[in-house]
Design a protein around this nucleic acid. Structure first.
Lengths: 351, 351
DNA sequence: CCAATTTTGAGGTACGTGCCTCATGACCTA
DNA sequence: TAGGTCATGAGGCACGTACCTCAAAATTGG
């Protein structure tokens, strides 16, 4: 049984009384308005700390009679994962509106870093409080993020990080751990030993590289009876991946396992089915989608590692609220958002 | 790019205008106060539907100047999972307070259905809006839940459901799917065939039974080369489970896999280590905890299926907000909370 | 049709915060 | 010391909803 000691949370009035100043001054400090001597501001800060005052976000947004404006910027195109991500965002628009958050989405041509940077630069603080971007590793993007931060827009990265920039949070999975998990599973699936092939989209992509490294490292450490073939790059293209996998299967007739760290799963599935090896080779791939779901159902794919777009979007929205609360305040009382878990799906626990 | 068509959400004022009644009448309808003719109420309901009016929960709680009161009732005792569940609740108390929700927890003696029922009966609608219980299958509990619902307290079940009662939602995993998933993994781990043992706490427990059935069914359907030994009941006791597992390992020297659907993992691990078979038998168990975490790290356990207490608590809180919004309204506009995913953990993706 | 009762309207105050104006006080500089 | 700038206080209105009172209107029963 928990009894709450302070039944009522502290309000700005309490802070004013505790600090021995007027409400107006507290307001000026809280909202970063000018005209407060450092000494006075310090008194207010102390009172805030003493009373553990936390601004009531709902009342705050109510008073401003404006919503917290959140914008997602994601790559467009046919990448099934990004489409799912967009759908996950759309799914959250209504519920978020109920909590006074308006969500907008814009897209940029996939891999077009300049376009992404331009999109970020176009944001004005008066119409956007927080932006969440699926970043590509690029200097222009890096600069755009820093500039947006300076303009007072909170920036977060999603799925793929841009460490070193002024982004407040990264929302996404640990791709090295994902690679190791795939290795751990495949190692147990193929206990008898043999060859395992690794397919990637491009090793220039940070997430693909990290998955590969985690996977290869784990096999080396724990399953010396398994030998790694590849990595091969299929550039996340259906046709190219299909041909690539067909060739690999052909050249390595005793292949026992296959790990695709990238996209292009439709091609992978087609090649496996065509070769007649479906079900005989253990297969792990990434991201739940219509395609991979079917792959699981038909027994072509054994395991899917998934980023859980819904969870990521939820975490992003929650983190945005957190940032909105602690903004402008001297102390950054932002807690890190919960880490995104790697979803592991077999045919039997498909959601 | 999404442009919001109706920039402003509808307010009670809009509803009053649309319905051609006064604000007071709208208020009476919205909050179920008496003194409104059915005809008039109908007009208001129509206006609400037309404008897609949704009460602003934050403003509502602000106006009432009281928080949404949520109570969790969970079993006490040494069950590590329940302790974790309690910790997950505690972790959410502060963040929830920031959204005007006060959370309290009470416990009852594990498996003591009468005590649970009494706890539920003791709740008054004026000090509790919503209660979340880890239910045991019992008629008295069933009745207590129905009575609470009649008193105007929303009830939800957590972890273990009580279907047929008036509980609004069940928050928990699909235990049949969990059992099937375990079977699917163990089947692939032990592709060469052999004997697999199943340990349960008690088959009288709904979740244990369901996991067992899912597991056994899947092995039968997909892995005929594997034969199931058991189920054996260890009553979720450390010592009893340890002795049980030791006996099973002794009597079945060629055992290739082991699935524990219940608790008592400390005993399981001890028995495996003592027998010298740790690492030679593939092991799947349930619930991340200090114990099972160590089991994973040391290679005694291969996979842990987890309920994700944090996710469950979060879902429960979100669902409670949803119920608070739609209460008293004629239409039940409650959407079902997201299903809880079965977490799958190996040594390599421990969170 | 009158009286009793029920239904409805009008308007106020409150919640915690944001934002505005205006007045007053303190401080500095010439 | 006068004139100016800057810091601070006092207070009000707004946001959307809850809840209250009081009066006016509509409906009902006899």
């Amino acid at each position: 049984m928990n009894e709450n000691p302070d039944l009522r949370r502290a309000t700005v009035h309490d802070v004013a009384r505790e600090a021995g100043v007027s409400l107006a001054t507290v307001d000026r400090v809280l909202n970063g308005r000018p005209g407060v001597r450092p000494v006075t501001a310090e008194k207010v800060e102390r009172a805030i700390a003493v009373l553990d005052f936390r601004r009531d976000l709902s009342a705050s947004l109510l008073a401003r009679s404006r919503d917290l404006r959140l914008r997602f910027i994601i790559p467009d195109g046919s990448n099934e994962f990004m489409v799912n991500l967009g759908a996950a965002i759309a799914r959250r628009v209504r519920p978020a509106a109920g909590e006074r958050m308006s969500i907008e989405t814009s897209t940029y041509r996939a891999l077009d870093a300049a376009a992404l940077a331009a999109s970020i630069d176009a944001l004005e603080p008066k119409s956007c409080d927080c932006v969440v971007v699926v970043a590509t590793e690029d200097d222009a993007v890096h600069r755009a993020i820093d500039a947006a931060t300076r303009r007072g827009i909170a920036v977060m990265t999603l799925v793929s990080d841009l460490p070193g920039s002024s982004r407040k949070h990264f929302i996404g999975i640990d791709n090295i751990a994902a690679g190791r998990t795939a290795g751990s599973l495949l190692g147990r699936f193929c206990a008898a030993g043999g060859e395992i092939a690794l397919i990637a989209g491009s090793l220039a992509l940070r997430d693909h590289r990290e998955r590969y490294e985690g996977f290869a490292g784990l096999l080396r450490e724990e399953f010396p009876r398994l030998s790694l073939v590849g990595p091969f790059e299929g550039h996340d293209e259906r046709a190219e991946t299909e041909q690539l996998v067909a060739e690999v299967l052909d050249r390595h007739p005793n292949l026992v396992g296959l790990y695709n760290v990238g996209a292009g799963n439709a091609g992978l599935i087609a090649a496996l089915q065509r070769s007649g090896k479906s079900g005989k080779v253990r297969v792990i791939a990434h991201e739940l989608s219509e395609t991979t779901r079917l792959g699981l159902m038909h027994g072509v794919i054994d395991v899917i590692l998934d980023q859980n777009p819904d969870g990521e979007i939820r975490a992003a929205i929650e983190a945005a609220r957190g940032l909105a609360l602690g903004r402008e305040n001297g102390e950054s009382r932002d807690q890190h958002p919960e880490a995104i878990e790697i979803g592991i799906f077999l045919r039997d626990n498909l959601r």
